Amino acid sequence: MIGKPYLLDTGLTSRSISFENPTGAPGEGGKAASNLGPGRKGSPMRQIDPGQTVQLCDIEGLGTIRHIWLTTIQEPVAQRAMVVRAWWDGQEHPSIECPVGDFCGFAHGKIMPYHSAVHSVGPTGGRNIWLPMPFVKRAKFSFTNEGEKAVPLFYQIDYTIGDNHPDDVGRLHVLFRRENPTTTKEDFELLPERKNKGRFIGSVIGIRNLHPDQWWGEGEVKVYMDGDTEFPTICGTGSEDYVGLAWGIQQTPFFYNGCSLDKNNFISMYRWHLPDPIAWRERARITIQQISWKNGLAETEDDWSCATFWYEPTPSAPLPEMPDLQARTADVWHD
């Protein structure tokens, strides 16, 4: 559709869900009333109380979520306290479970304006995700405020129905991990082992350098797949090398790779394997080492996090347990 926007008879029908049309049904948008009357911006947002969960969508049938936009408050702690979850095709456990900030492209709760192939983020916290999210029976999204105060939420989910997906189409999976600090010689897992066919899309990776007197990023990415044991099939050459940079990290965001934050020993970087797929048939596990340079290579421990994105069919195994609120929000960025 992107490559041939002039094709009109695609068999697809466009729909959109927001608080102005929470079902996406035809002719049902904008019916709420404001002080200006019915249909005049009557329900663009809601306040989400502490501990409250709201349903963002519950779509039945074949379709593809094409784009999600949302915005809320900008406080760094809140970006890790608000959580997005998604369920595909009737599966009981979520396939997406991630803090809102990391899901939308930035680590540490620090909003930085940039765009990539997957995300675009505005300077005041307008955030977008562009990865297609196919489903064959049902798609559900929720938003939970695990913070201590109410937050405003504006959102819109744009999708199509009438898509022709096979039953084993890859469903988007997203997890969040954090180790604060990591453990010496125990490589940080970007993707804990998955026992299903799949395709790795990439990660938003956060690093808080706990040793400012040394370079943190000599560690290599390793992709263990389809029978690999001690040694991987795919092996990188360094942490900044993995995100397409070199000779240290630079705050330079690009379309498929780069770094959106490099300030005060906080780094947020990303890599998207869209033109260069990493796919497996049976199982995969992906790690990155914590190796520093201080008068030579040395093992180190720092604060690492990731929001990792991949596709695999359902049924799929449950995600690893997400860190709790305190573990997610400790030591985030402070404005």
Rank of each mutant, 00 (worst) to 15 (best):
F255P: 07
A78G: 00
T182W: 09
K294P: 00
I48M: 07
D102S: 15
D167N: 12
N21W: 05
L274N: 04
C235L: 13
W215A: 08
F188R: 07
G206L: 11
I48H: 01
R208P: 01
E218V: 05
T300D: 14
N257K: 12
W130K: 12
H93R: 08
V121T: 14
C104M: 15
G217T: 01
D302A: 10
N164S: 13
E218I: 02
G63S: 13
P5C: 03
N257R: 15
R66N: 13
V100M: 14
V332M: 07
R194S: 15
E321F: 04
G11C: 02
A284Q: 04
Q74W: 02
G296S: 14
D331M: 02
D324M: 05
L172C: 12
G162D: 08
E92C: 07
E312W: 01
R40D: 11
P99G: 03
A117K: 10
Q79G: 02
A33T: 12
T233S: 14
W247P: 01
I68P: 00
K197S: 14
P166Q: 10
D276H: 14
L7F: 12
E218Y: 04
N264L: 08
G11E: 14
Q156I: 07
W310N: 06
V77L: 00
R178L: 12
L325G: 02
D58T: 08
G206K: 06
A327H: 10
T287Y: 02
I288M: 14
R127G: 04
I129S: 05
P181Q: 13
G61P: 06
F188H: 03
H334P: 00
D324R: 04
R285T: 00
F254T: 11
P26I: 00
S292C: 15
K294C: 08
T314M: 02
T144L: 14
M225C: 08
K31P: 02
V204Q: 11
L274W: 00
L319T: 09
G11D: 13
Q156T: 10
W216A: 09
G39T: 03
F141E: 01
F135C: 02
W216T: 06
L172K: 07
W304M: 09
A279G: 00
I59V: 06
V174N: 07
T13D: 10
S16A: 15
Q250P: 00
A139G: 07
D167C: 01
H108N: 01
L261W: 03
G296Y: 02
Y155A: 04
P26G: 04
N145R: 06
H67V: 00
A78M: 01
I65A: 12
S203F: 05
W88Q: 07
H211M: 10
P5N: 11
F254L: 14
K140V: 15
H119S: 11
H115C: 13
I249N: 13
I267N: 03
L175V: 04
R85K: 15
A150F: 03
A117D: 12
